[in-house]
Design a protein around this nucleic acid. Sequence first.
DNA 1: ATAGGTCCTCTAGCGACTAGAGGTTCAAGA
DNA 2: TCTTGAACCTCTAGTCGCTAGAGGACCTAT
Lengths: 142, 142
Amino acid sequence: MLSIGSLGKATGVKVPTIRYYEQIGLLPPAQRSEGNQRLYDARARERLAFIRHARDLGFPLEAIRELLGLADDPDQPCAAADAIARRQLATVKARIARLQALQAELERMLAHSACGRIGDCRVIEVLGNHQLCLHDHPAEAE
Amino acid sequence: MLSIGSLGKATGVKVPTIRYYEQIGLLPPAQRSEGNQRLYDARARERLAFIRHARDLGFPLEAIRELLGLADDPDQPCAAADAIARRQLATVKARIARLQALQAELERMLAHSACGRIGDCRVIEVLGNHQLCLHDHPAEAE
DNA sequence: ATAGGTCCTCTAGCGACTAGAGGTTCAAGA
DNA sequence: TCTTGAACCTCTAGTCGCTAGAGGACCTAT
């Protein structure tokens, strides 16, 4: 049985984060020692590793909650899990596209920068005048 | 003079967001009508458009605060503004790299998905077992 | 005069943690 | 056995950049 600190080290998840996951019901309430400290077995460790890995891949906690529900039930069809992963892939692709547009714009801005006085500064100028910019209204979040 | 709603429409910034910017001091307190409603002139409009554009490019509000400070002072050297933009570019590039790794991992996961029972599900399996995954510990935020 | 749209302030909530206060328990060394 | 100090406990509040809602005031057009 592992203490919360050892579990944290074993999975690469910070201690307050583990407690937070328990608080929001992503992890079940941990067993407790006589002195009221949390104790974790191998199953709990696997569950947390699963969460950690999914977080690394950018899945939001709600999606992870769904995935955990599916993982607990090995006879369910796997299409649901696939759908969640595909959704996540779509999100990631959209973010990349958005960021690449930002990158291009920032590079364009910096390429023309004369680096003299602020009054002539391309960076400030472009920010102040949308006409000088390529895309008009990206609308969505980074 | 524009009302807050007209300013919002003109700049593409939502009304509560404009009030929020005033609250945190990114915009100066607006002039008021007799009935205590906010009124904006062309200068205020330019300032907000500047903020909007910088936000579109992903600059955090603190960086925008700096940029606004610089923009107000046209005789300052422009190197400071350049540095902020370069910092932002570096952030954007790092995020893209991170997201591309996630994309590859998600695609790999989905490519091997047999889509039968959860028990055989590649998605669930990879999430549960880090060995099956390419990168070990991406560490940083999305 | 009245309807309804826009404005006002204020508080609370989102996601996913992170930080800190103030107190308890545990393991290792003297 | 005692003592230190690291690790644990709970609880609250803060982060970022908004967004939503309550409850009310104002303003414009008919």
